[in-house]
Amino acid sequence: MGDDAMSRPLKRSNAPIFWGLFGAGGMLAALLGPMLVFITGIAAPLGFILAPDAMSYANMMAFTGHWLGKAFVFAIVPLFLWHAGHRVFHSLHDVGIHAGMVARLVCYGGALLGTLIVAWALLLIGF
């Protein structure tokens, strides 16, 4: 018995990359998510607490024009996407859908695509 299993070669998991992005996104989502939903979904569009033009096109361009604004958007959007991708991937596995290469490509590929789009859009705005 034992000998067979003991000598089975172990392959190092590359999960730390995805788990790290998932963890970072989860931390930001927990800390900032509700506030962002409130600002972008309620406060800004209804002009409640915030000024009605708080998230106007001009203001947002100015926000993302600054390197700090860029850093914020680049941290928030891609990390939220990586968090969601990882969560969806593992939930598929939980509900019995075989989470193979296709699911991996859709979940993590989606997050990677989102990351590239955000990077591209931020670069287009320029410094």
Binding site: R12, S13, P16, D94
Partner: peptide, 14 residues
């Protein structure tokens, strides 16, 4: 660590 970090290891846990 070899077993902890392996594909059979801790990262299977959700």
């Amino acid at each position: 660590m070899e077993l902890v970090a392996a594909e059979e290891g801790v990262f299977n846990c959700t």
